[in-house]
Write a protein that binds this DNA or RNA. Structure first.
Lengths: 225, 225
DNA sequence: CTCTTCACTCAACACTCGTTGAGCGAACGA
DNA sequence: TCGTTCGCTCAACGAGTGTTGAGTGAAGAG
């Protein structure tokens, strides 16, 4: 029989539980429609306790969408555009099946809540820089191209995850990734009207499973933190 | 000196003014953060009057995002994929500079308001069907491809119009359209790995100005009604 | 002019929200 | 066992919301 948990342990557990339910509700309903009372009820706790732990609803939301500091990654070597698309599609494919609640919460509220909007701008901006770094340095449209890549993924994710559009709901994530591949390659410039540039797999390929190697750090919608 | 407007005229004028301010505020702040009181104040009118005219906040919102019935267009001949991309890019280019408030309101609230979400699903669904109809009939992924086209445009519009992402803010709309063109063509399948399908212009073309002819009816983000 | 219609306002209700301060009671340290 | 700490609850406040019904006064009809 396990020893009953200490007071400190229980304290940490309830706080974690509250944060978890908050994340889920923020992801489902957005900031405005999620009430402190609902979170508290969901966590079997008094509303006042939520305030005591997190200070205010805003602070709780920021904690909920905040991403843990990125692993101490040694300056990721900028991949070539071909590999970049692979990375993007992989994380998209994986995450279409289950983005973390924190990211969904940020996406859900970014159009209606100023804090969430700022959070999204900064996060998507970082994503954009990350993608742009992998584009040929002589491309003066690199930032714009990268931003279009990112917003494209955002749009697809919104349609698939948040809106649940019928024509996408049934399609498996890797199929979506496969259909999207030529578009991203075109956007990124790795496929030119004549003569492809990088090491690119067969265009119609259904396989998205394996990223080249060394997983995509700093690239992918799940990094919206 | 103009004759003073009749009672009926004034009545219609104030109703139109209220609806106009409502649209603007819904587009700026979304459904939840827009109050009847704010709309009324903006239209120099009592809140109760807004209720009297539109019944409820929900009804007012639905009126605000509702698109006037499409012009009596004689069954638009399904364009080929190449012309389709032109249409999409044209409307995107134009509308990036100024989507109607009703559409912005629908986009703004679709992630947090159930009614707006349903509205968006139906509208984007119609858009998808319209795009899919222009794809080669033997393509079993037509619906998915079309949905990806639509969600891509939604994502770009959100990033550009609603979030105001820095890397896109300065870029003129037609440049965005030009950068997006190869991606949409790839998505639509007008550029295949081997053996293109339809009559397609040069892929790298920067020109977006002129749609083939007979403007894009039923296709374009502004039709989100 | 008189009477009616009606665009419009006033005041208030009922409700939900985030937030607060006091207080209870069990776990803890001595 | 005593006193203290502290995780947690209770009850309530004050602000803001959508919505309502009665009422006002000017434009229209006769």
């Amino acid at each position: 029989m396990p020893t009953s948990p200490s007071r400190a342990e229980r304290r940490r557990a309830t706080e974690a539980r509250v944060l978890d339910r908050a994340r889920r509700l923020f992801a489902e309903r957005g900031f405005d429609r999620t009430t402190i009372r609902a979170i508290a009820a969901d966590a079997h706790v008094d509303p006042a306790l939520v305030m005591q732990y997190f200070g205010s609803k805003r602070d709780l939301f920021l904690r909920a969408v905040e991403i843990p500091p990125p692993p101490p990654t040694p300056t990721t070597p900028a991949p070539d555009p071909g590999a970049l698309v692979d990375q993007l599609l992989t994380t998209l494919g994986v995450k279409l099946g289950g983005l973390p609640d924190g990211t969904l919460a940020a996406l859900r509220s970014m159009l209606t809540d100023p804090d969430a909007a700022e959070h999204a701008r900064q996060s998507l901006g970082r994503q954009t820089d990350s993608v742009a770094a992998a584009l040929p340095p002589d491309d003066e449209d690199a930032q714009a191209r990268a931003a279009l890549v990112v917003t494209t993924l955002v749009g697809v994710t919104i349609g698939h995850q948040l809106l649940g559009l019928a024509p996408l709901r049934d399609v498996p994530a890797d199929r979506i990734a496969a259909l999207l591949r030529p578009a991203l390659e075109a956007l990124v410039g790795s496929v030119r009207p004549v003569g492809p540039v990088g090491p690119v797999g067969p265009v119609g390929s259904q396989d998205v499973a394996g990223p080249p190697e060394g997983d995509a750090e700093g690239v992918g919608l799940d990094q919206l933190g």
